[in-house]
Design a protein around this nucleic acid. Structure first.
Lengths: 168, 168
DNA sequence: GAATAATAGTTAGCCGGCTAATGCTAGGTC
DNA sequence: GACCTAGCATTAGCCGGCTAACTATTATTC
């Protein structure tokens, strides 16, 4: 019964895998657990983030949500369409600005706040169950720095290259 | 130009976000960078893992690949179908066992080893560019432990519960 | 005021991930 | 040999993520 079916592609251990292999692995595991917990209340794996933002500010424009979620507009549009179809949110065009769509919670959506908050706490607990508070802080710090390195698109400025305008 | 549009749902900082929020964030950033680098050779974001396994053992059964990649059979089937269509791999039924499909590299697939290895190295370098070697080892260790906590499905054994046989 | 630019959303289509349901092959058991 | 079980792979369909291309509205600029 070969234990631990090896990590993606590196050796078998897990410890000796590259960080580039560990990140997708831990992310998938985390997403799977989140998904199975959220299924209890009828949500799919990423939908809690939308609701969490709406619990803090109910009528929010779709563009604002898109920015805060750090996703692309089409991704947000599809997610919101599903959440609307599921009855957790409502969408209506703004009267003040005909371009913006305002997203607000329905009663069902509001009712999820307590259970989802509980699930989110449980998830965080299981995620960090093997870490001391100091290690958790360390991990947070390391992940933050890695995120910054990954989003600092490209080389940090080789003298001679005419500062590319950050794509797009 | 509002810097750092906030992390998913927690505060604005990044440092003070929950680990459950940081994991998806860092994973998305990592995947996006990987995808843009791999696009250079005509690969999509997860396909390098398949090829990496095949470079180590070219005719490999689909079931083996599925297990090593730690994904579900349908996911593997679709990925392999695309890789086959793209001309990087070939699939044929095993003569010895009519159930198994053997996956092998084509010349195009084999030709990707050098460039993808280079890309993979660059990706890892940018991922860890802000970390000392000690911090990298620390991060690897922490991520490994978190992965184990996340995959150790459910409670770690409340005395009295008759050790559930790992679900499914 | 008309032309242009910037913003906001949508649609189509692709990729990776999953579950549920189906089919097919190989191994056991009686 | 017939039956049942286990293992391998596929199809259909959903979810989150993306790019490219498009529409519609508001804001600028001349």
């Amino acid at each position: 019964m070969t234990r631990s079916t090896s990590t993606s592609v590196d050796g078998g251990g897990l410890e000796d895998a590259s960080i580039s292999s560990l990140i997708p692995t831990v992310s998938k595991a985390h997403r799977n657990l989140a998904g199975s917990l959220l299924a209890e209340v009828g949500l799919a794996a990423g939908q809690q983030f939308v609701l969490m933002l709406l619990w803090k500010a109910s009528p929010t424009s779709q563009a604002d949500l898109t920015r805060q979620l750090m996703i692309e507009p089409p991704t947000a549009a599809k997610m919101l369409a599903r959440l609307e179809k599921a009855g957790f949110i409502e969408r209506r065009r703004s009267a003040a600005d005909g371009r913006v769509v305002l997203v607000s919670l329905t009663e069902s959506g509001r009712a999820l706040e307590a259970p989802v908050t509980s699930i989110w706490t449980r998830l965080e607990e299981q995620t960090t169950s093997d870490l001391t508070p100091a290690e958790q802080a360390q991990l947070r710090h390391l992940l933050s720095r890695v995120t910054r390195s990954l989003t600092a698109d490209g080389d940090p400025g080789p003298p001679g290259a005419a500062a590319r305008p950050a794509a797009r």
